[in-house]
Write a protein that binds this DNA or RNA. Sequence first.
DNA 1: TAATAAAGTTAGTTTAATCTAACTTTTAAT
DNA 2: ATTAAAAGTTAGATTAAACTAACTTTATTA
Lengths: 220, 220
Amino acid sequence: MLSIAEENYIKRLVYLSLENGAGDGVGTNELATGLQVKPSTANDMLKKLRQKELIDYEKYGKIHLTELGTKIGMEIIRKHRLWETFLYEKLEFTWDEVHEVAEQLEHIQSEKLVEKLDKFLGFPKFDPHGDPIPNQAGEMQLLAKKMLAAVNVGEQCKMVAVKDNSAVFLNYVVELGLGINNQIEVLSKQDFDDSMEIRINGKTNRVSKKFAQNIYVIAD
Amino acid sequence: MLSIAEENYIKRLVYLSLENGAGDGVGTNELATGLQVKPSTANDMLKKLRQKELIDYEKYGKIHLTELGTKIGMEIIRKHRLWETFLYEKLEFTWDEVHEVAEQLEHIQSEKLVEKLDKFLGFPKFDPHGDPIPNQAGEMQLLAKKMLAAVNVGEQCKMVAVKDNSAVFLNYVVELGLGINNQIEVLSKQDFDDSMEIRINGKTNRVSKKFAQNIYVIAD
DNA sequence: TAATAAAGTTAGTTTAATCTAACTTTTAAT
DNA sequence: ATTAAAAGTTAGATTAAACTAACTTTATTA
């Protein structure tokens, strides 16, 4: 069984592998930064994880998760997202509060707990941030998510997730009356600063480029 | 903030203090045995906990929790029993499965989580084992749980827990129409074999001494 | 009450996860 | 193509929580 520290390294590796795309692999410094540890610390842990056959890499080379490592990582993400859903749906936590507590809950070891929780929540497919929840086999729906900034004038879309999970950003989102699965229509764009006018539930707002680059949508 | 190890020592000290009664204090070996560590390990931790003013003791003397130590201990027990209740009531865990998982969940740090969970469960006063759940202030109903076998003829009581968790026993309990919080009236006792006649929901049954020694009740 | 057992303590070691500082390899830029 | 910067590694130190072995104090009992 893995320690909490080991689980955190594996989880971060899954996220970074997805971000970097395809078989690009992950770097030591990148990983260390993401975990807020020094590269030397990450390096030590990487040796241990390779020993346990959860990752694969050569000295000075990129890190890749093995099949086993990926499976374990997906389980942790599954737990994280199920707990986020629980906190949001059942305990009235807000969007920005769920993450921190889920970071702790994701390390609880009990297969039965995860499956019962999943059932209790009605087998949700997405968490409150709109991110897909992996199933028991570690598979998850990849929805063709894109940035709001990439939507053309006159088109409609549906918000599915946010990129930035900070409290300041999420508060702003809520203030705009925007939530998961809400429709957004792009009314106009300014070439000068890439700000855009959008309509949410009949209400029109102007949002910045930075904002539009932190909202994930799907075509609608 | 306390580490999981520190929390486990404090929790065990609360239980042992209650068991030993009044101001008797707890011994190092007793504590070490309860936590499945060596006395020397416990001794080191005790120094740290004294440093943090959670306990009070002199070299070679008995250990007493301070007011702060007791408060923290009761919070951990509160969390443990709320989680047990959650697992039992909401996730269909059985009586004997809840403890192990609650041992992990009790260490999650989030005041909001505890209070929201309490509310979600409808502010329960007892956990699935019939043990009282401390309130936010750390106070709990001290119910003098006793064996059904110890109830006098003519008295009424309420079942709060079972001692034996075996399937054969639990099946028998169910067959008798007995469940948690059910009233039981002791109608008569046979001095010969200590069997007793009891009334459950208007139905009268004769049960053995062995049975009566495996049902916990409180006066009613 | 003296001897022995039980309880408690100390000193020194181990392991996991972190750090700093110094070093090596790879990558990028002039 | 050299060299400087970035990325990655190694060595040695630290802290928390555990251990063993040896020791001291307190309690028991013959």
